[in-house]
Design a protein around this nucleic acid. Structure first.
Lengths: 218, 218
DNA sequence: TTACTAGATCACCAGCCGGTGACAGGTCAA
DNA sequence: TTGACCTGTCACCGGCTGGTGATCTAGTAA
């Protein structure tokens, strides 16, 4: 142990009184930085050192406050779960749709809008797909739950037509929308459809409407 | 500085005549290992060292034969592209469908089957989504092209009904199938639909058929 | 003033990473 | 035999990673 340390010049408090000495604020900085790194750099590239650097915080604090990277991810998962509830439930609760078809149409278009405008939403979706290590299981569940609650509160007493497997059909629609938004982030065309401009998305919306009305009736 | 190396005992060729001294075979081992690592460990965790270890090959050979990791990925991309063409084009070329709806139905179900049974296909799809760094652009393009060629060869002179945006509708269907297969690999239920058994997939197939017939006519 | 606590920082470690240069041994043509 | 060439192997480098123990310091209560 010969650390010796030849340069004890301690820069004796040279200005920079940044250390805020506020645990709650520090925890928030860490969480915010994790979110930012995830949405900007992707799942890889999120390590303890990188996170500490991005947050402008000593990495020791990550261990102290969250017990490590896993704890940070878990806390971030809870935050995202809450966020999803807000986004879907705080929808304008007006004008219940007249038909089941209209209900699903609205759900689909709303989901498309949220995914397209909120990078975090799309990113967390991708995160779920890539998973490995099941850290994000609760996150998936919470989004499904939020969608379900939105349905329950908006549908009133509407019922799907007889003989149609509504859960399966709806799952297909939601899946398609999720995939297209994700894919459009890395590729200008998705399955041959140009999705780098508003025109492409308008076509998606129209086609979605058509599909919905095709199965659930006009 | 002080490498000294106290144990120069060179194990003078102690059996182990494994070095195959066959460049083509070594290149194949590297490519196979890259594919395996990608499908099993995911995009992260694929580094030069890990790859060399998995392939049982000195990493120097990766640099020599492929110029680095990028070269390996590029070569792998070409391999996967060829693979896609085989899988889709070598479909039983029999019995042209009678209607456009039947054509799309077949395309969708075939895609679902290929994705479900070939882990590499699903994995490469996910890889495209996660991208970052555009290494896999050509890969995406090649799949889209393979799908297009399959369509062209199978459709004959079938045309979609007037007034339906067929490219958009088809893109939605393909996207949905891709997403569900991907998501089912990490979660037992997708958007509330249980996809951990054959029953769930049967529902997806039935719902797909219904959607197709709903837009393109019975 | 003093003693104490909790927040923040520092110093350091073992280990892995991507990447390079040098070398050993086989193969084949001249 | 000689020498060029090719395949495979090894040692090494700087830099970064995850993780830990010790220390510093602002604020507070006695």
């Amino acid at each position: 142990m010969n650390q010796s340390d030849p340069t004890p010049q301690k820069t004796p408090d040279s200005g920079e009184g940044n250390r805020s000495r506020d645990r709650a604020a520090t925890e928030k900085r860490i969480l915010d930085a994790a979110q930012k790194v995830l949405t900007e750099t992707g799942a890889s590239g999120l390590g303890v050192n990188a996170l500490a650097r991005a947050a402008g915080v000593d990495k020791q604090l990550i261990y102290r406050y969250y017990g490590g990277l896993d704890g940070v991810l878990q806390a971030l998962g809870e935050r995202i779960a809450l966020w999803w509830q807000d986004r879907l439930l705080d929808d304008p609760p007006i004008s219940p749709p007249a038909t089941y078809a209209a209900l699903i149409e609205r759900l689909a278009l709303r989901l498309l809008h949220v995914l397209r405008t909120e990078p975090l939403a799309a990113q967390s979706g991708l995160w779920e797909l890539a998973d490995t290590s099941g850290l994000v299981g609760p996150l998936t569940a919470s989004r499904a739950r939020a969608l379900g609650e939105w349905m329950a509160r908006t549908r009133g007493s509407l019922q799907p037509p007889e003989g149609v497997d509504a859960p399966a059909v709806n799952a297909i629609l939601v899946s398609a929308i999720s995939y297209m938004v994700l894919a459009s982030r890395t590729s200008p065309t998705v399955v041959g459809l140009p999705l780098d401009g508003e025109a492409g998305w308008a076509r998606v919306e129209a086609a979605t409407r058509r599909l919905v009305r095709g199965v659930y009736g006009a």
